[in-house]
Simulated assay, not measured.
Amino acid sequence: MDSVRKEKYALIGMGDFGSQLAVTLAKKGIEVLAIDSSMEHLEEIKDVVERTVCLDATEEKALESQAVEEFDAAIICIGDEFEETLLIVTVLRNLGVKRIIARATTTRHAYILRHLDIEEVILPAVDAAYRLANKLSLQDQFNRLELSSDYEITEIRAPSKFIGRKVGDIRFREEYQVVLITIKRIETQPHFWGLATRDVERFIGIPQPESVIEKDDILLLFGNRKAFEHLLSDPESSFPPPGEEG
């Protein structure tokens, strides 16, 4: 039986980001060619990755000697030297590399790279800021769809008094005169070979009595405005801790 072909990537620039990516890929069984103009950077990872080469990636002949066009992708991991990144993009194109992934440190740099038809652009700092902003903005977020002068569908962050409780124990209809339609949950999933994460919204469907409300859940509710005001203003003491009802 033929052995399964290993993926292989050529990584250019072994700073903090590049070396971490190289090590992460190598530990996942991927063949990594690590390229940097500094032998010192390569020394730190040489025992982990498949191969390291010290060369100037802006020199076409030097890069051509490594047959980078045969790899599944070339990933430019350089951060601050954007001019160098552009030169390497040109070299890789000249060598016939079909898939080029490039790191950008600013949105302007990302914009330029995408206009050069680099579809896969990594923006680590911007992605991290976006995730944090999304997380923080959920704290007081209310989205409303008015159905009439009295009734609406409202999206609210789960009050702390509900967290850890079963849906059936909260008695939305009896206690608050609202209907729980569904629960939107923000889940953090690994992204880009585990080096980064991204927040993904997931609806849990029709909540069952045994469904447990978790921290940061978003509740989609139907009811009238006064009912929502009661729910949101109701003191936490009106609910005993889980397991102590009645």
Score class of each variant (00 low, 15 high):
residue 50 E to Q: 12
residue 39 M to K: 13
residue 88 I to T: 06
residue 41 H to M: 11
residue 66 Q to R: 08
residue 50 E to D: 13
residue 98 K to P: 04
residue 143 N to M: 13
residue 40 E to P: 01
residue 122 I to G: 01
residue 91 V to I: 09
residue 81 E to Y: 12
residue 142 F to P: 00
residue 110 A to W: 06
residue 111 Y to G: 11
residue 83 E to A: 15
residue 136 L to T: 11
residue 169 D to H: 00
residue 102 A to I: 01
residue 94 N to V: 14
residue 88 I to R: 06
residue 143 N to Y: 09
residue 118 I to Q: 07
residue 147 L to F: 08
residue 56 D to L: 12
residue 92 L to A: 08
residue 100 I to M: 08
residue 160 S to R: 09
residue 49 V to A: 02
residue 52 T to E: 01
residue 52 T to K: 02
residue 82 F to L: 08
residue 121 V to Q: 04
residue 117 D to H: 14
residue 102 A to W: 04
residue 136 L to V: 14
residue 135 K to A: 10
residue 127 D to W: 03
residue 122 I to R: 04
residue 64 E to W: 01
residue 111 Y to N: 13
residue 143 N to E: 12
residue 93 R to T: 10
residue 94 N to G: 07
residue 142 F to A: 04
residue 121 V to A: 03
residue 106 T to R: 04
residue 115 H to P: 07
residue 85 T to N: 13
residue 65 S to V: 06
residue 64 E to C: 03
residue 88 I to D: 05
residue 46 K to Q: 13
residue 55 L to Q: 02
residue 38 S to L: 09
residue 97 V to F: 07
residue 116 L to S: 09
residue 159 P to E: 00
residue 160 S to G: 02
residue 129 A to C: 09
residue 143 N to F: 12
residue 46 K to H: 07
residue 70 E to Y: 09
residue 67 A to S: 15
residue 65 S to M: 10
residue 64 E to D: 10
residue 69 E to N: 12
residue 144 R to K: 11
residue 95 L to E: 02
residue 145 L to Q: 07
residue 144 R to P: 02
residue 51 R to K: 15
residue 107 T to M: 14
residue 97 V to Q: 01
residue 102 A to Q: 07
residue 37 S to F: 07
residue 141 Q to N: 09
residue 164 G to E: 00
residue 59 E to M: 09
residue 72 D to M: 02
residue 126 V to F: 09
residue 134 N to L: 13
residue 111 Y to T: 15
residue 65 S to D: 13
residue 107 T to N: 10
residue 106 T to E: 06
residue 106 T to W: 04
residue 59 E to N: 15
residue 70 E to W: 07
residue 65 S to P: 05
residue 132 L to S: 12
residue 95 L to D: 01
residue 92 L to Q: 05
residue 68 V to K: 06
residue 57 A to N: 03
residue 122 I to A: 05
residue 35 I to D: 03
residue 54 C to Q: 14
residue 61 K to T: 15
residue 75 I to N: 01
residue 124 P to L: 11
residue 130 Y to E: 13
residue 94 N to A: 14
residue 63 L to I: 02
residue 114 R to T: 05
residue 52 T to G: 03
residue 157 R to G: 01
residue 100 I to C: 06
residue 60 E to K: 15
residue 156 I to A: 03
residue 136 L to M: 10
residue 127 D to S: 12
residue 73 A to Y: 05
residue 114 R to S: 09
residue 102 A to G: 05
residue 88 I to G: 08
residue 39 M to N: 12
